[in-house]
C-alpha cells in the first residue's frame, strides 16, 4: 500500500528524467575533458530514450517507464571540420552543460514538490 505512494506517474517520470540528466552531465564532462584529444567522438544520451519516455507516458504504462535504460553512446550526427577528427565544440558543450544544469534544477524541484505534497497529505501540515 505504501508502495503506491511512490508509483505516481509524475514522480516516476521525474525520477527517470533525473537519471537521464545525470548521465548526460557525465557525457558532457567526458566531451569537455576530451576537447583536445585527436579523433575523439562526442558522447550523448541515446535519442531513443526520449522516444521511449514519451511512449511510456502516452500509454501510461508505468512498468515500461521503469524499464527504460539510459545509454550513453557516440553522437555521429555532429560533423567536424577539424583536422584531428575531433567533433567536440567547446561552445556547444558549455551550452549543453548550462541546459543540463537547468534541467537538473527543474527535475529536483519536481521531485521535491511531489514529496512535499505527499507529506502534506499525510501530516496535514505544510
Amino acid at each position: 500500500m505504501i508502495d503506491s505512494l511512490f508509483h505516481q506517474p509524475n514522480y516516476l517520470a521525474a525520477k527517470k528524467l533525473l537519471e537521464a540528466t545525470s548521465a548526460e552531465r557525465v557525457a558532457i564532462s567526458g566531451n569537455l575533458a576530451n576537447a583536445e584529444t585527436p579523433g575523439y567522438q562526442r558522447l550523448h544520451v541515446a535519442p531513443s530514450f526520449k522516444l521511449q519516455l514519451q511512449e511510456a507516458i502516452r500509454t501510461g504504462d508505468m512498468s515500461a517507464l521503469d524499464e527504460i535504460a539510459v545509454r550513453i553512446q557516440e553522437d555521429s550526427s555532429v560533423t567536424t571540420s577539424r583536422q584531428d577528427g575531433n567533433n567536440v565544440s567547446i561552445e556547444r558543450e558549455m551550452f549543453e552543460l548550462m541546459r543540463n544544469s537547468m534541467d537538473h534544477a527543474m527535475e529536483t524541484q519536481l521531485l521535491t514538490g511531489n514529496l512535499l505534497r505527499l507529506r502534506l497529505a499525510i501530516t496535514g501540515r505544510p
Partner: peptide, 25 residues
C-alpha cells in the same frame, strides 16, 4: 580555455550534487 571549460564542468557537477542531496527538503 580548455582548463576553464573543465573547471565549469566541475562546478556544475558540484552544484547538481548539492541539488540532488536536497531533494525532499
Amino acid at each position: 580555455r580548455t582548463y576553464e571549460a573543465n573547471l565549469a564542468a566541475a562546478k556544475a557537477a558540484r552544484s547538481m550534487a548539492i541539488q540532488t542531496l536536497s531533494i525532499g527538503k
